[in-house]
Each structure stands twice: as C-alpha cells, then as structure tokens.
Amino acid sequence: MSNDIFVLVEHHGGAVSEATNELFGMARGLAEASGGAVVGCLLGSGESGLAQGLAADAVLSVQAPELAQFVPEAYAATLAALVADRDPRALLIANTTVGMDVAGAVSGRTGRPLVAYCSALKVEGDTLVAISQIYGGKLNAEVQTGSGAIVSVVGGSAPAASGGSPTVEDVAPPDLSGLRTTFVARVEAPSSDVDITSEDILVSVGRGIGGEDNIELAQELADALGATVSGSRPVTDAGWLPKSRQVGKSGRKVKPKLYLACGISGAPEHLEGMSDAELIIAINTDEKAPIFDVAHYGSTADLFDLLPALTEQVRAVSA
C-alpha cells in the first residue's frame, strides 16, 4: 500500500470542477498525516493539459477516446484498474452525479470499502476516520475504516485549493473494448421564465406544502413581498412547480437576500443550494429538522397558519 491520497479530477468543457478543487483542499492535510503525496487521477481524451494548476504533487493521466465524455462504465473500469495497481491510502471522489455513479461501482469492482456522504476526514495511524451525513442530514456518523478506502465527499467540506504544478505521468488505459455504454449528448438547461439565482427574495416551498393547490399560499405571500416562489426537489418532481424553480444540488444554487423556507426539511442536497443566502427564515413543524441548523430564524408554526398570517400582515404594512 502506498501512503498517497488519490483524488478523482472531475472536469467538463476544459474546466476542472470546484468540487474537485475542494477535494484537493482536503487531500493536502491527509497526505501530510499519512506521509504520502497528493495524486490527481485525470481521465479524459487528449486533456492531460488540465493537470497544470491542480493542487497536487503528481497527476496520473489516463487518456483514451472512450474517456472523452463521462461514461460511467468506462470511468469505473479505469479507476478500478488504477487503484488496484497503485493501491493508494485513500481515493477521494466528490459526491456529485459522477461520484455517485463511480464511487460505489469502483468499490464493488475492487472490494475496497466505501465511505459515503463524508464531510470531514482524518488519518489516524493506519485507519481513516470520517464523519458522514446520513438520514437526510438528521444524524452524523463517525466511522473508521482501514486504509485503501474510497471516500465520497459532500460539497463544501473543505476550502478549494488550486495553483500547483504537479508532475504528470501518462498511464495506459485498461482494455475498454467491451463497453456497452455510449455517450449520446449533453443537454444544457432549457431557458426559463424566471432565473431564481437572480432574485432578491425567494419564498421556497417543500413537501410540507402538501399539494399543488396549496402553492397558491406561497404565491400570495410572494406577490405581497415582491418575491418569487421556488421549491425543493420533491415539489418540482411532482410537477407542482416548474423544474427551473428547483433549489439544490441538482437544481440551482441561490444566494438571495431573504430565503423563506416553508415545509422544507433541509436535506444536505437542498442545503447545498441555499445555505449561503444572506437571511434564512425557516418554517417547519419538526423542531429537529436540519433546516434550522442553517436558518437564522425559525418557527415551528404550521405553515398553513403562518403563511396566510404573514401575507395578511405584509399587505397591511405595505398598504
């Protein structure tokens, strides 16, 4: 086993993702503790130039036509071969779609343990100790695992690092001839009526709103405030609000002056999209809901009482 800390480099369109730079930020301290190097794993096609500027000591560059786009099967096979060959102390992968797709598959292929949803990680002698967010953010688990683990890391767990000049080693890809997955297209977000990322005030609703008919309650308050209605994923999945209004990991990242979260539990995937808002006020009948950990003010009143009361009082003061 080497003492190196490996990082999967996620990139698109010639740019390395911010989540990757955060992994490098996390890897540095770990490598110092383990006595190894920080090593980037750069998969692509003719893109080894992206290595320059990564905050790594070395980069293993695997370039092949099959890796030109994110093809989960090809990534998993390549990474599995790489860790089997180099046996790093840990492999860090961001908990993005790419991470959710390959971390488990590499673990399944190689038999290496996997720690998911990690928000903090340290090296203690021969073991790795991680804090993971589970149960929708309601509990943290402190887990230990032997060396060689794969760790998928949630966004915002470490400050981003960049600006290094690592050495680059070209590594031949494994046999990728039998792939059954073909990349067809990348589809950008369709343009939409409103851009929630540029709104000052968002009245945001979660599953607690109960149904499409009740969206009206939030809309009335938004109208009174001069605000826009946004929502959590279950609300847009159910079609109660358009997709373009979704806040969170797979929706938009917003930073309004005021974010009023109504009936939103505050799952990590939601918090990722709004925890930087200037003022967060949460309404949730569950006093243990994780949303109250990021909110500045909170109320456990029933939203079906509080929203109409607020609307009325806003109208009264604006009249």
């Binding site: 994110f70 990349f183 990348r186």
Partner: peptide, 11 residues
C-alpha cells in the same frame, strides 16, 4: 448532472 444539465447515454 446538476444545474439543469443532463447527459444522454445509450446502454
């Protein structure tokens, strides 16, 4: 993939 972007794969 996040932020409204999707990938299409044929498997």
């Amino acid at each position: 993939m996040g932020a409204g972007v999707t990938h299409q794969l044929s498997i």
